[in-house]
Amino acid sequence: MGFTVSLLMDELAFAGDAAVRGEGTLAVLAGSGVALVAAAILVSLLARRERGREHRRDTGGRPPPPPRPARPPRNTRSRCWRRSRSSA
C-alpha cells in the first residue's frame, strides 16, 4: 500500500515537471528494492538463529557430536594368516 501511495503522491506533487516526476518514480522504485533486499537479509539471519535455537532445544543444549572418522578397509588376509599361525 505504501508503494502505491508513494507513486500517487509523486504523480500529484510533480504533475507539471515530467523530469522530476520520473526521478521521483525511480527513487520510489529504488527505495522499494533496497527495502526488499534488507528484509530478505534480516529474515534469513533470524531464521538461521531460530534454527540454532531449535537444535539446542532438541539436543538439550549439548553441541552435536563430532563426525566419526572413516574406517580404513579391513585387511582380511593378515587376519587369516594370524589365526592359522596361532592355531598351528
Rank of each mutant, 00 (worst) to 15 (best):
V34A: 14
L36R: 08
D58P: 09
A70R: 13
L45Q: 15
A35Y: 06
L8W: 03
S32Q: 09
R56G: 00
R74P: 00
P64K: 03
G22V: 02
E54D: 02
G61Q: 12
E50D: 15
G16R: 02
A47L: 14
L8K: 04
P65M: 04
L26N: 09
S78D: 11
G2R: 15
A18E: 14
S86M: 03
P73H: 13
R79T: 05
R68A: 02
G52P: 02
G22R: 05
R82M: 13
M1L: 13
A13W: 12
L42D: 14
L42A: 03
G61C: 06
R62G: 11
P69G: 01
R77Y: 07
W81T: 14
A40I: 07
V28F: 02
V20L: 02
A13G: 01
A19N: 00
E54S: 04
S86G: 02
L7W: 01
R71H: 06
V34Y: 02
R49H: 13
L8I: 08
P64I: 08
R85F: 07
G16A: 02
P67F: 13
R53T: 01
V34M: 09
G31A: 06
L29S: 06
G60H: 07
F14D: 02
L7V: 10
G60Y: 01
R51F: 10
A38R: 10
R48V: 00
G31N: 06
A27K: 07
L45C: 04
P66A: 08
R74W: 12
G33K: 14
H55N: 08
R49F: 05
S78N: 04
